[in-house]
C-alpha cells in the first residue's frame, strides 16, 4: 500500500507514486503481507526428458502428503496442521496457511505414468515425471 504524497504540489513525488501504482500489479510481491494465492505454491518446469513440479509446502510430514497421477492429472493433496495458540497467548500476525489443501496440474500427453518420483526436502516437494521413451529426443545416425 502506497500513500498519497503529503506534498501534493511535489510533481516528482506524484509521478513516482503514479509509477509505483502502475508497477504494482506486475510486482511479484506488492503487498506487505507475505500471502500467496494458493497453497502450496507451484513451480513447473520441463525439459525434453522430464517434467518437474516443485510444490512449496513447508512443515508437512511427507508421510501425510498424497500425490496421485490419474489420467494425466497430477494431484498434490494433504493437510497442514499448525500448533494451536496456547491459552493466555496472543496471535499478533497470522499469515501462514493451515488446513487441508489440494492442487491439480494437468500434465502433457507424452509423460510416462510409470516413471514418476517424488522427493521432499527443506519443505519443497519435487515431483519428476519422465517423458515416454518414444518422445525423448534421439539422434538418428546417417547410414
Amino acid at each position: 500500500m502506497y500513500y498519497r504524497s503529503l506534498f501534493p504540489r511535489d510533481l516528482f513525488a506524484e509521478l513516482d507514486r503514479l509509477q509505483r501504482g502502475m508497477q504494482q500489479p506486475f510486482d511479484p510481491n506488492p503487498n506487505i503481507r507475505g500471502l500467496t494465492r494458493g497453497f502450496p505454491a507451484l513451480n513447473v518446469g520441463g525439459s525434453s526428458q522430464a517434467v518437474d513440479i516443485y510444490a512449496f509446502a513447508p512443515g508437512i510430514d511427507p508421510a501425510t502428503l498424497e500425490v496421485h497421477l490419474v489420467k494425466g492429472m497430477l494431484t498434490i493433496a494433504g493437510e497442514r496442521k499448525v500448533d494451536p495458540v496456547p491459552e493466555k497467548a496472543t496471535l499478533h500476525i497470522d499469515e501462514r496457511f493451515a488446513g487441508r489443501f489440494r492442487r491439480v496440474v494437468s500434465l502433457p500427453d507424452d509423460v510416462d505414468p510409470n516413471a514418476i518420483e517424488a522427493k521432499y526436502r527443506d519443505g519443497v516437494l519435487h515431483v519428476r515425471i519422465l517423458r515416454k521413451e518414444e518422445a525423448q529426443p534421439r539422434r538418428i545416425t546417417i547410414q
Binding site: R33, G34, L35, T36, P40, A41, Y54, F56, A57, P58, G59, V82, V85, P86, K88, A89, T90, L91, H92, I93, D94, E95, R96, F97, D122, G123, V124
Partner: peptide, 20 residues
C-alpha cells in the same frame, strides 16, 4: 508468511521458508 504469538514469557515467530 509469518505467524507471531506472544505469551507471558516472550514471543514465538514462525516463518515459512520453503526451499531454504
Amino acid at each position: 508468511p509469518t505467524d507471531v504469538i506472544e505469551d507471558a514469557g516472550g514471543i514465538t515467530l514462525y516463518a515459512d521458508l520453503p526451499g531454504v
